[in-house]
Design a protein around this nucleic acid. Sequence first.
DNA 1: CGCAATGCTTCACGAACTGAAGTAAGCGGC
DNA 2: GCCGCTTACTTCAGTTCGTGAAGCATTGCG
Lengths: 133, 133
Amino acid sequence: MSSNDTCPVCRTAEIVCGKWTLLVIRDLAEGRSRFCELERSLHGISPRTLSLRLRALEEEGIVERQTFPEVPPRVEYALTDKGRALVPLIEDMRAYGIQWLAVDCIDEDGADETTAAADGEPVAEREPAIAAV
Amino acid sequence: MSSNDTCPVCRTAEIVCGKWTLLVIRDLAEGRSRFCELERSLHGISPRTLSLRLRALEEEGIVERQTFPEVPPRVEYALTDKGRALVPLIEDMRAYGIQWLAVDCIDEDGADETTAAADGEPVAEREPAIAAV
DNA sequence: CGCAATGCTTCACGAACTGAAGTAAGCGGC
DNA sequence: GCCGCTTACTTCAGTTCGTGAAGCATTGCG
């Protein structure tokens, strides 16, 4: 598309850089599987965007969609191997967030967030894997 | 803003998910430092977007900007520690791209140094269950 | 003087994302 | 029978984001 298509970083970036994509994958990795579960977990996502993301991800072979002909209709989404292979990436992002973006619960004070962390000092040491969200 | 601000994944995602952001960081990590170098390397990026990205990244404390009062005026951008900490993430993306998006890394710009140099952990060449899409 | 180079900014346009609302299909309550 | 509830979406209008072309400011060179 826009940049070098032969570059694996670019190609991964194109998958990953949609606005909610990574978060959808994270939620799927954490066991959420249904549309409305994702919708509630990712609070703020519009159903259109979620629908678009899931469909794109399905087309990429990153998620699998399974419909159950029940009432009310049930649809479950799950990561494929190709999707699960993105989990380390997400864990890296979590580690980065913890190390360099470390704000535990407070963000809406605004203004100063950059000066706090931008001075070149990591805020926490590396925490392994799955944290409670 | 959109989702849970207490989640480190979300906060990292917000930094990383701008359309060219990761690629800008990669180029910076590979040694490119000037506006027009980046502009040419990321062919297809609009100067406005590059300018926006660089400024946002600077405000995040991820890149440092240094101006030289020469003629023509020179400006150099470089990653801070906080920015360099994102390189493993990019390497993960490269590994993912190579494993699952099955295109070899052909960076004709001589960008190959990182693949060679950043090989602290060898990219395991697993068999990607060949996605014939 | 006119042109070139660098590092932007401005502009108009189209693509992407948003929030609210609507749709379909059937179950349970009244 | 009719109403409302649920799920998994789709549609719509509106806002924000990214694009490509062009412009601006500086000043050294021919």
